[in-house]
Write a protein that binds this DNA or RNA. Structure first.
Length: 485
DNA sequence: ATGTAC
């Protein structure tokens, strides 16, 4: 970390840049990190998060989570809430991969049953869930079907045989956010999305078979409520988003917003922060199109879940029901949502941008499935393929301090380019096999980019927010098999 | 992240 900005340490794991540090800052910027994470924090984060603090209508603070690093306009790991009356919406605060997110799925299988057959299982999953750049799914949706998916997300999937009725409530927003309007989505986005349903994509997207080690259960009661109670229990984690569809929506509206900025006489610190008033026609159109992409990403993860059920059923020669393949939860970590918070003593409606950040609502919230309401929202944090992932629970403190938000993963420390220079994909594959992780990848160079050394230490990231009481650790999950794009 | 560049 090198910056000329004044950064005050205000508590053990919380840092603040006062609004006097940059002309135009409307609120302070806050960074969540322990000393180690703070020292290694990408310098771009300081520049970007203080730029975000200048955007119209921002409330309280511009936030960056401990997994934060430089991104397009906003840092990845960024959280910013804007007044829905006079604030903005910005594609850079959501990300190109709209509703990129995580899903965690249980089984009642044990590691000792799965490990001997991991190669066969991974081969089957690799066949059933297409991975890699430009991967096409076996389901080719018509324009009418796509419209249904954009508007109704997971409900469409369940009605069409790609899920079980009980799946819907175990998904953020029940797998579809109302207000999506397909007429705000370009033909080009629709054509890119038509054959990508049920596909994983590339980059850091993966499908992982994981196990629960007994000494990695930190909160037995909450884990049990989330469906994790067995020693050596096998679970499945999926990380993917809206593929080319969401990417095209973001691209389309960045162009629209470039013009809208001139029209409304708005200026921003960085062109990548292109935005429009949320209530303007441009802002509202983007929001409605963004929700179409968000719903299709929920549907994408749902169709992948269906393929997982089919694959496990085939390999273990019994029904998915018998195998207990149930959703724990599904979270979006690239999205903007309308939520209400108490700000300066008054309840206020805000548009919370979470870019590489996860909603982590505390206990009692009506948005949570009834069975989880006593313990808070499950939060799924995907680590690097080598180091494992976490399941956490949201808290009331997060509602007060971070607009109900926490980290989304480990966070990169190394560029993709730098990682490829340090690591060879074929060697990494062998190293991981020795560590008991069977990997199948669509791209060896892509695998090298995702090496564990290219990421922060996930445990430190998780501990930072656990120590502050923003999210509480429930379970750490160890990978045994991985499919990546 | 992304038919990894319009």
């Amino acid at each position: 970390m090198e910056t000329s900005m004044k950064v005050n340490k205000i508590s053990d794991c919380l840092w603040e840049i006062p609004k006097t540090e940059k002309e135009g800052m409307l609120v302070p910027a806050r960074i969540y990190a322990n000393d180690t994470l703070f020292e290694s924090m990408d310098k771009g984060v300081f520049e970007q998060i203080t730029n975000v603090a200048c955007l119209p209508g921002i409330q309280k603070y511009a936030l960056c989570m401990p997994d934060g690093h430089w991104g397009y306009g906003f840092p990845i790991g960024g959280v910013a809430a804007f007044d829905t009356k006079d604030g903005i919406i910005s594609p850079g605060g959501i990300g190109f991969d709209i509703n990129c997110g995580m899903r965690l799925i249980t089984t009642n299988l044990k590691a000792e049953e799965v490990k001997p057959r991991i190669r066969e299982l991974i081969n089957e999953l690799f066949r059933a869930v297409p991975a890699g750049v430009g991967a096409k799914g076996t389901l080719k949706a018509s324009v009418t079907q796509l419209k249904g998916i954009m508007e109704r997300g997971v409900d469409w999937c369940i009605e069409n045989g790609y899920g079980w009725p009980q799946d819907r409530e175990k998904i953020e927003e029940c797998g579809h956010i109302p207000g999506a309007d397909p007429s705000k989505v370009s033909e080009k986005a629709i054509s890119r999305g038509a054959n990508q349903l049920g596909t994983l994509g590339s980059g850091n997207h993966y499908l992982e078979v994981q196990m629960v080690k007994i000494d990695n259960i930190f909160d037995e009661k909450t884990a049990g409520i989330f469906g994790i109670s067995e020693k050596n229990q096998i679970v499945i984690m999926v990380h993917c988003g809206s593929r080319g569809f969401g990417h095209q929506v973001a691209t389309d509206y960045l162009k629209v917003f470039d013009k809208a900025m001139k029209k409304y006489g708005m200026t921003v610190k960085d062109r990548e922060l292109a935005c429009a008033p949320f209530k303007s026609s441009e802002g509202s159109d983007y929001y409605k199109a963004m929700l179409c992409a968000a719903n299709s990403a929920f549907a994408n993860r749902q169709i992948i879940t269906h393929r997982i059920r089919e694959s496990f059923s085939k390999v273990f020669n019994t029904s998915a029901e018998n195998l207990g393949i149930e959703i724990v939860y599904d979270v979006a970590h690239n999205i903007a949502k309308v939520e209400k918070y108490k700000i300066d003593g008054k309840e206020k409606e805000v548009l919370v941008h979470r870019k590489g950040s996860t909603r982590c609502f505390g206990p009692g919230r009506k948005e949570l499935p009834e069975i989880y309401r006593s313990v808070g929202q499950p939060v799924i944090v995907g680590g690097s393929m080598q180091t494992g992932s976490y399941l956490l629970a949201g808290t009331e403190k997060a509602m007060q301090e971070t607009f109900g938000s926490t980290m989304h993963g480990a966070g990169r420390t190394m560029s993709r380019h730098a990682a490829k220079k340090r690591v060879r994909g074929d060697q990494l594959l062998k190293t991981m096999a020795k560590d008991g992780i069977h990997v199948k990848t669509a791209s060896m160079s892509g695998l090298a980019e995702e090496a564990g050394i290219a990421y922060k230490n996930i445990s430190e990231v998780v501990e930072t927010m656990d120590g502050l009481g923003i999210t509480k650790k429930v379970v750490k999950l160890k990978p045994i098999g991985n499919i990546k794009g």
